[in-house]
């Protein structure tokens, strides 16, 4: 276990040390102390390193992650795990806006609440939020799964493509072209696996599934006057 004091040694030193492991199969463990809300902690990692951040972070923690496991023992600012490709990011507290935005793969777990625009333009990432999510989540979501154990805010899944949304609580409103869909056995299986991997104590049968009505995929001449 290596310990890095971010306040004493600075951000660049941390990210270059972690990025030096990129491409290796080195499974070292790192602990980052005194994050104090700093931005861009543990970004651009590409090795199976395990990073634990002892406190809350600012913008873009664990951005562009590949392979690494990043655990934040606190809350995170905007854009956690933005554009994640693979690996796992776990936030013990809350996440600010656009958590997991544009993510292509990997698993993002938020044990608290996520605010607005969680999973915006998601492209294959799996996101499990133990609490509630804010408005405009998964806007233009293309692929992947967004699982919410609590409630969802306004305009869930607006203009979404093929991303799937599973919500256990209430949904304040659905966005344009997002509808409730039938929960089939294959969805129960997907959900069971995600809940287990996210350490979430919930039954797949308690959730409702939402997704695209696929009515915005093609131009409809009846809508011509809207442009």
């Amino acid at each position: 276990m290596q310990t890095y004091d971010l306040e004493a040694n600075g951000l660049r030193g941390l990210n270059s040390a972690l990025q030096e492991l990129n491409g290796s199969s080195n499974k070292t463990a790192w602990e980052i102390v005194n994050p104090k809300g700093s931005h861009a902690i543990a970004v651009g990692l590409n090795s199976p390193v395990e990073v634990t951040v002892k406190g809350s972070t600012g913008y873009y923690c664990a951005g562009m992650n590949q392979q690494a496991t990043v655990r934040v023992e606190g809350s995170v600012g905007p854009g956690v795990a933005e554009n994640m490709m693979s690996g796992t990011v776990i936030v013990e507290g809350d996440a600010s806006q656009y958590a997991g935005a544009t993510g292509h793969g990997g698993l993002l777990v938020i044990k608290g609440n996520a605010s607005s625009r969680c999973g915006i333009s998601m492209k294959g990432i799996d996101i499990v939020v133990h609490g509630n999510i804010g408005h405009m989540c998964a806007f233009m979501g293309q692929a992947g799964n967004l699982v919410v154990l609590g409630d969802a805010g306004d305009a869930l899944g607006d203009s979404c493509y093929e991303a799937r949304f599973f919500v256990r609580g209430s949904v304040k409103s659905l966005g344009a072209d997002c509808i409730e869909k039938e929960m089939r056995p294959e969805h129960i299986e997907i959900l069971k696996d995600l809940l287990a991997r996210a350490g979430a104590d919930a039954k797949p049968e308690e959730f409702k599934r939402y997704g695209s009505a696929r009515k915005l995929y093609n131009f409809d001449v009846d809508n011509a006057q809207a442009y």
Partner: peptide, 11 residues
């Protein structure tokens, strides 16, 4: 009661 644009301001 404290307000900050970012958590950094409150640490």
């Amino acid at each position: 009661v404290a307000f900050g644009s970012e958590y950094r301001a409150l640490v």
